[in-house]
Amino acid sequence: MNALTLWFHKTGSPPTAYRLAGRIMPWCYGLGLVLGLVALYGGLVLAPRDYQQGDAYRIIFIHVPCAWMSLFAYFFMAANAFIALVWRIKLSEVLAMAAAPIGAAFTFITLVTGSIWGKPMWGTWWTWDARLTSELVLLFLYLGVIGLHAAIEDRRQAARAAGFLALIGIVNIPIVHFSVNWWNTLHQGSTVRLMGPSKIDASMIWPLLLMALATHVWFFGSVLARTRIGLLELDGGKDWVRAIALDDDKEAHA
């Protein structure tokens, strides 16, 4: 076994991964919070008013990063599910399932903020716009993965089945996007371009990118937090988990 695979197996072992995740997690959360606040200041205060949409466009600073995250989280989940199914690495199973609820949360935020943004711009809370519809299907895909994972008793089998579903979904996403676009051209009338290829000012673009960075870092913090729990559940009977459980009890009573 060469040094790389040795390192991989060592960090992939649940107790080591648990400790490592615990050390990195607070930094991710902290950095995400700081970057996010700076981006918010830039977006809400420093960025100038849009000449077409007025101040309503400021929803973009959360809507678009969350939309990016909803896809990124799905790719992250599917990539880990692939690794888990092919090489049967436990840590990847846990990582994939940790990403699902976070991705669903970002998808939900995208839908709700998109609909809130649509009200003043389109005059309606919901239009069957191609991107909104795709995002809705994406939310269903997430909910399917989470539901399947929750419905199966055995944790490893649950992760493998839900991971398989995530892989089917990754094939489905571009097909849905393509079909919804075609469908939208068939039913002309509800297509409203929210953002054309218009030039966006630099003072608007940096808070957007910074917010995207912040949500990515935050995502990894949350993935690590959920991974730690997944590892505890997976290794329920082992000694290292027992030690953590008893320590936790002492802290609670101290």
Partner: peptide, 15 residues
């Protein structure tokens, strides 16, 4: 649950 799993896959076919 089955409906939830299946429907996203059915969307393109229906469209």
């Amino acid at each position: 649950l089955l409906a939830l799993l299946v429907l996203p896959l059915y969307v393109p076919v229906l469209i």
